[in-house]
Nucleic acid binder design. Sequence first.
DNA 1: GTAAAAGTGTCTAAATATAGGCTAATATAC
DNA 2: GTATATTAGCCTATATTTAGACACTTTTAC
Lengths: 191, 191
Amino acid sequence: MKIDTNNHLTLGAKRTLKAFRTAMFESLAEQEFDKITVNDICQKSEYPRATFYNYFDDKLDLLEYLWSYIGHDILQQLPNVAKNEDGLIQTFNLLLDFFHEHIPLLENIKHNNGADSHLWHNTAHYLKHEANKIIVENCLPSTSERIPTKLLARFYSDLIVVMLEWCLFEQPDISKDQADQYLTTLLHGGL
Amino acid sequence: MKIDTNNHLTLGAKRTLKAFRTAMFESLAEQEFDKITVNDICQKSEYPRATFYNYFDDKLDLLEYLWSYIGHDILQQLPNVAKNEDGLIQTFNLLLDFFHEHIPLLENIKHNNGADSHLWHNTAHYLKHEANKIIVENCLPSTSERIPTKLLARFYSDLIVVMLEWCLFEQPDISKDQADQYLTTLLHGGL
DNA sequence: GTAAAAGTGTCTAAATATAGGCTAATATAC
DNA sequence: GTATATTAGCCTATATTTAGACACTTTTAC
């Protein structure tokens, strides 16, 4: 990423980023990541290559930005009242819903080695990172004597991704209630 | 219109024009033209006002560009083989189909005085102009001893708009065949 | 009727996008 | 294998967009 999206962005920069995001997202539902070229992205987004390279180092850079953006965007929907265990379950549900709302994307990931693919590792990594931020902000006790809260947050965000992989790739016909129950059980030590 | 769309347009200019066209087109299906503001268009298209005024004098200017563009775009679909009377009927059908594919727009026009509204006059004027160009290029004998071909083209494009108004506003439940038959009859002097 | 709010159209320096050319690296074809 | 085409990054002068301010008009509210 050649710019800092935390700085103020002009309307034009926002439009440009949106166009590239959308183009990559749509492409991911159509063909595997390795087959997608920068030219494809530029054609779809109607921007010249020079503009692409004004913002991104390469298509992987765009992909990572996309997942960060999507993760942030999804988890922003988390209601402020969601605290502790409830917050974790809702975070997990938001992510699971997202993939169920984008079946072509999910099918494409599955079609390319699923949970073992580079694409999924990348996806999971950035979603986990965003989930971690949300958990730190919303779902943790401010202090704990038994364990560092940062470690707890890592444990939680990892757990969410484990459950996500399970529900998407291993047991795709699982019900929401069953999934939430598994998650709750694991949160309590898996007994 | 502050630029000449016949000149070469950069990718960026094409994107900008497309965004403003789309914003106006969508707005026309949502509210009456008089209520649409330049600010609305800019918000929808995600462009600042300054950019709007780089291209257009005002919202009417954009509206006129929109209809010219749409007219041209629709009538481009006319197959090359469409000549003479056949070409006229197909031109008419393309325009009629367009409105039937955009019911919310049509309803909005009807809701605001229909064929008597400024909006429709404007629409009809620019569509007629594009139809006229198509007719001159495709549907006329190259010369005629009985009448100037330009006059004939005017007569034809007027007739198409008359039929369009009839089918959209006066007899909206008319069948396509019946409409085409009326048009043919009028072409032969209305006997 | 008058005050506040919203809209219009213009302007400018700074930010950003653009065409297209360049080299090098990879595919694809035969 | 070698030729051909496609892609990746990078670069630069030029063109376009941008924020925000300005003066003015119109709409809305009460």
